[in-house]
Amino acid sequence: MQLSLPELSYTHKSITEFEPAIRNDGRSIDQLRPLSGQVDVLPGTNGSARVKWASSVEIVIGVKAEVGDATPEGGKYVASVEISPSVSIQNRETDEIPSFLTSALQDLLNALAVDYLKFTPSKAWIIHVDAVVILSSSPYENILSALSLAAYLALQTTRLPKISTPNVTDITIGSTKYEPSEEYDVDSEWENALPLQGLELMSVIILVSSIDQVIIVDPTIEESSVAQVTYAIGVQASGAISYTRVVGTGGGYASTGRAITVERYIELLETASTVGTKLLNASSDILSFKGLGFFDILP
């Protein structure tokens, strides 16, 4: 997005020349935009969530589990992100933004354990995490944070039908050519379906920008245009960092693109970690929220 020099200068100055910094939308530097969400929005899926990030981004995610061929690791997670045609003309799978988002989401999912998804020697759960961006005020918006949070919530609500394999021991087989059974029984009761395991390794992505001496989280487009650098940082519930990546090196303002020091980098990570843990903690309440409509995760 092209911004005029006065705009950039105004944004830069109000952040760097005041103590505390003044952001365009009145937030404090470590404050995320107000966000709300909803879980179990799609009854036909195994798990689903919808996240609204301020009034600029909205994402729906459905998780569908299907029985497929096992991989050497066990099962697998498959991410797919689509952009609604009403949001952007870049809505084909191969377009730059959807494929960037898909690979980012896949990176997050790849951290999860998949060995337990296999239930017979050749069959395993294949878990499709399908996201649709239904609102984004600009293609350069901070979609990643909303996407990762929606995925985190959707996975939390996901249930896999309970599968039992016959307990075939060598005695009942009585055979020299014993092969473990490919048979499995599916419990038809949805109530008995089981949650996913190892979700503590799922991260939420927090964007952090460094603007001169100030670190701000969840920058707006104007803010990231004046930042030296903006990092997308994956944060696990434990506060551990799982992922960092540079996104958007600014919009051409004087200070952008300048290298930062290691100390500065660690500072950025620490900020993200604090904010991320807070977000994940706040979002856990939504899982027990039974009412209709949106639940405010962070006002």
């Binding site: 016959p166 075939v168 009942t172 087989i173 009585g174 055979s175 050519k177 014993y178 092969e179 473990p180 059974s181 490919e182 048979e183």
Partner: peptide
């Protein structure tokens, strides 16, 4: 048992 039968059919 059914599971034994099916396993043994599979391995011939």
């Amino acid at each position: 048992s059914m599971s034994r039968l099916l396993a043994c059919i599979k391995n011939g």
